[in-house]
Amino acid sequence: MFRVMLFLLLALSSSLTAFGAISLVDASGRPIVLDQPARRIVALAPDIVENLYAVGAGERIVGRVSYSDYPSQAESIPLVGDYQRFNAEVILSLQPDLILAWLEGNPEAELRRLESFGFKVARLSTKRIEQIPDNLRLLGRLTGMVPEAERVADRFEARLRGLKPESKGVPTLFYQLWDNPLLTVSDDALIGQAIKFCGAHNPFGGRPEAAPQVSVEAVISAAPDLIVSTDEVGVAWQTRWLNWQMIPAVRRNALYTLSADHIHRATPRFLDGLDALCGAVASARQYAGVKPR
């Protein structure tokens, strides 16, 4: 009889954990309280969609923004707009019990408008590498998928520890975020954090904006040992630099293209992009500090 009662108590405890109230604080410092794990979710950034699938909660997504295309089954989820302009009426029709937002990217005024309709909005930040496993765990709590989220987050952290780069030599790296206008990144962005992690120097890292606009003359003056961009910029970005042979990176053909889906998205796949970035930095490390002739 005692064993039967113990079994029932354990089962009840498990049920309360899976379906009980959830209380936490999001990246903006706002408290988020759910009566039960979220079942109908609108995700307002591609990386949030990807991370929900990573923790086993992809089937809970009822609305997504454009470019939320990984994994492939996400493309069948109804669109609610893009990350800067989403359709509140469509979101209303989907009746989500939780909206997951990108703190640095979604317009705050629109998020507050959604909250005025009675929706619960949790904001996630993606400015730091360590926030990726933190966000995975947070999504696990919000969806009741804690064990799977812990496994995915633990795997991320273990692989991240294994990517620790060499400390000898600090090459200067110019990251070309876009071509027209010419945009780069500061240290106050996920990619800027990746550059520091790989042991390179970002000459524009101290700029206050996350994606500062720079001139070709400023890049020439910075004399980067390597220039890195992504397939998002296109296939001709390297050719545009060939006129500037006084730049060490151009003269040595140290121009590298990464996958934007990897290095720009704060998901488990980010480590693939980080690994590729660190590989590019390692190849340029031998030239760090070498002046052009």
Rank of each mutant, 00 (worst) to 15 (best):
A280H: 02
F19Q: 04
I91Y: 05
D26Q: 10
L100G: 06
F174A: 03
V233D: 10
P203F: 12
G29L: 15
G140K: 07
E110R: 15
R155D: 02
R128G: 04
F119Q: 08
E157Q: 15
G273R: 02
G58Y: 07
T230W: 14
P46T: 00
P107C: 02
L190Y: 02
I220W: 03
A45M: 04
G144N: 09
S28G: 07
C278S: 09
L34E: 01
V65G: 12
A236Q: 04
E59V: 13
M145W: 11
I227F: 12
R85E: 15
S167I: 06
A18S: 14
A222V: 07
L79Q: 06
T267H: 14
E157V: 15
L142F: 07
A236H: 09
E115G: 08
D134K: 11
A276Q: 10
R112G: 01
L10Q: 12
P96I: 08
R265M: 09
L79H: 12
E108H: 12
R113C: 04
S93E: 08
A122D: 09
I263W: 11
T172F: 05
G20K: 07
L94M: 09
W241T: 05
G206F: 15
L136G: 07
A45C: 10
A194V: 03
V80S: 00
A122N: 12
A54I: 04
A266W: 06
T143Y: 06
C278P: 06
S116P: 03
A122E: 10
R39T: 12
G140D: 02
A282I: 05
G140L: 05
L111M: 07
L111F: 14
L100N: 07
E115C: 10
Q73R: 05
R141S: 06
D261T: 14
Q245E: 13
A11K: 09
D26P: 15
E130N: 06
P96D: 01
A211N: 05
L183G: 04
P212T: 08
N135M: 08
P208E: 11
G192M: 04
F7W: 05
L6A: 13
A153C: 08
I77R: 03
K196V: 00
A280G: 04
F7Y: 01
I61K: 15
L258I: 06
V235Y: 11
D272Y: 15
V90E: 01
S259H: 02
L16Q: 11
P181A: 13
V62E: 14
P133H: 13
G58S: 13
R207G: 07
N202E: 13
S68Q: 12
T126Q: 08
R252G: 05
A153T: 03
A54S: 12
R269H: 15
V281D: 02
S72R: 13
D179R: 15
V219A: 07
D261E: 14
G192V: 01
I41M: 13
Q131R: 13
L8A: 09
A276N: 11
